[in-house]
Every structure is written in C-alpha cells, then in structure tokens.
Amino acid sequence: MVGFDTSDDACVYRISGDLAMIQTVDFFPPMVDDPYLFGQIAACNALSDVYAMGGEPKLALNLLCVTSCLGKEVVGEILRGGADKALEAGCTISGGHTIEDPVPKYGLSVTGFAHPSEILRNTGARQGDVVVLTKPLGTGILLTALKADFIEMEQCREMFALMATLNAAAAQAARGLAVHACTDITGFGLLGHLYEMASGGDVTIRIQAGRLPLLPHAQEMAAMGMVPGGAYRNLEYVKPYLAVSPQVSRELLDIAGDPQTSGGLCFALPEEDARRLVQRLARRNIPAWVVGDVTAASSSVLELMT
C-alpha cells in the first residue's frame, strides 16, 4: 500500500481487506549520557513511525550495537529504557540482535497494524486544511549546544521529557477525524517533512513562524551558532521550493529546518477537525499548535511567513 516512492514514515502491506501491516526500523547513536533515557528516546523515535502511519505498534525487535568496553549494566539500562516504552505502547519486544561496533547504537524494528482505511500517509494535504504540530521544535540545536557545553543538562529537561514521550496519545486523538496527511517530524526538520506533505497535491503549505512552538533556549542557541549540519542541509534541500518573508528571523528559519529526534506528529486536516484534535489533546494534557494552513498552489510549495 505504501512503499519507497513517497518517502513515507514506514512501509505498509495489505494482508487482507481489513488488516494492513506497518513495518519500520530506526536506530541511532546516543545523544545523551544516561543509558536508560537513551533507550527510551530511541524506542519512542522508532515506535513513532507506526503512529505516523495511523497504526498501533504490536511487535518489535531490538537492534543493538555495543563496544566491548560498554559495561553490562549500561547495556541493560539501554534495553530497559526501550522495553519500558514498548510496554507503555502495548508493543511486545520479542527478540533482537546485537553486534560489536565502535560507536554504540540502539533502536527498534517495529511491526504495527491498522485497518487499511485508517492508514495515514505523509502526502495528500488539501486546500483548506490547517497544519497541527504536537511537540515543540529545536532538539537538534539543543543537542548541539549540549555537546558544546553552551547549555546545561538541567536547561534541557523539557526537551528530554518530550523526546521520551510516545506519540501514541496524539495519534489516538486523531482517530475518526478527517486527517488528510500525517507524518512525524524527525531528521528532515519541519520544513523537510512539510515539503513531502505538500508534494503530490496541487497545494502550498503556509507556516506562520511566530506560531511555531519552540523548546526553551532553542532561539538563543541558534543565534550562537549551535545549528547542526543537518539543519543547513535540510534548508538547502527545500530552498528551491520555499519562500521566506523578510521579517522572519534567521533563528526561526534555522529552527524550522532543524532535524528533530523523536519529534511530534504533524497533521493536515480541515479546520473544524483540527479544533477537535487540539481539544481532545488538551483534555489529555498534551499541547498541540496550529502552525499554518494549506492553500491553492502558489509560486512556492512552502511559505514561511510572520
């Protein structure tokens, strides 16, 4: 049902008329010293692709790369972090594979299921939709700042809590609403993922920079040159398709291109449905932000305006 061609979050295979299987894999090196937290973040990030496709994760396998000098305890804590998030997601980790590697890495291969009619794609935003985002932006910038000691771990508490938060509740809240497109915001940054969302449809996505939810200190750290290479590459990639108002600050543009780790879900859906989505999420104490809208195609696929 969904393959390589649209760079979607996962592949989808129709097993029968009422069952589709979603398959995805994601793993990466640690971005934080705490092994338990790293395990949680890696698992949330991997499980997120299933939620972004409209499914429920059911089975997962660990992928683990460790150096021989990494203690048993540390490895155990990484796996415990992953297992706890899988349990919270109602997903069974049924095995996995470990290899030796000079750079440790952890992640999951995840299998999820959905009714074929409930599959959400990353393309297909329609004119009249609004764009809703469920986590604030700036993880790439803050992680760079942490690496450079420009910021303290303590100042990034909110970011780590959000990175270790499943997108399950956000996905469940969207059930039954007229979602035309959905994706999770990860390595390509908000603009990279929105470019995919707009492509295929004859539409332009307009983002209001002033409405973007930002992690604390992200703007300040961007201004200090803590912008990861991935953000520049993402901005370079979308440049031919992007119109930026001159009033939009350089820092907000950086943040709109910033690669996210375990980022939020991003939905394109009609305004009335978006209002209900935000209300449903508010009842679960999950913030969500309307950051833009979808219009008839103009000269640019994406617009970042004030």
Partner: peptide
C-alpha cells in the same frame, strides 16, 4: 573549511 562551520562561526561572531 565547511559551510556549517562558516555559518555557525558567523552567527556566534555576530552574537
């Protein structure tokens, strides 16, 4: 010697 370093050092210098 690469664009990321150039951009980021320029940002820090301005800041």
């Amino acid at each position: 010697d690469h664009p990321t370093a150039r951009e980021n050092t320029l940002r820090f210098a301005a800041h």
